[in-house]
Amino acid sequence: MTKTIDKNFSMPKCFNERSKPSLYCPGCGQSIFLKHLGFIIDDLEIQGKTTLGIDIGCSLLAWNFFNFDIVQTHHGRSVPVAVGYKLSNKRRIVMSIMGDGGGYAIGLQSLLHAAFRNNPISVFVLNNTGYSMTGGQMAPTSIPGEITTTSPGGKDPKNSGKAFHGPELIKQISDNSAYIARASVSNPIMLQKMIKKTLENQIKNNSFSFLEVLTPCPTNWKTTASESFNFLSKMEKEFPIGEMTKNEK
């Protein structure tokens, strides 16, 4: 079958047009994020010197999304792989993309120590309050009362804890020069600005930069487009959006 997809029509220049339409579900928030990441990489003109580490989970579906180097890592280990890559090759711009399962559950210790050591990499954690590739099980980030396949009566904060706040935790141990923020797919202009700052902080300040992105998952939330964005606004109340700054100065 010959593909007639024209890249110039609306895609970022660094996209691999042969892998489109992508493997993501209809309405996936992760592909909205990846699109804006692509535009920022075009904007900063860093396509030739970028390396991206991806994790197990829905983030692995980005394995042929871009026309630059992408490394597939073990579950929760995309941060240490990115750190190692950066240590051996300081001129590269190294990013790591994970889901909330990889970032806050299995790979939390790697993430915390990368922040603690102030390794100069950019980490993006995409938070959709569940383990989506395996069928929408309850995750640490599920908000209290959320109905998932393993919490049919709604998440009970007494037994399962409240929602996990990643950037707030990382802020406590990170260096002063680190950039830590939370964005949401519901505001693409702000998202683009924050992605740009996350990458610029790695390039200019040579320090750790971290961005959590709230993304909808219509397949596992079982929502339509409007319901997805309603739930996203509910998530934004639980996870406040913005840049985290340290209190000193």
Partner: peptide
């Protein structure tokens, strides 16, 4: 265009 996940509209 900004919200489309699949770059299908402009």
């Amino acid at each position: 265009f900004r919200f489309c996940p699949d770059c299908a509209i402009k």
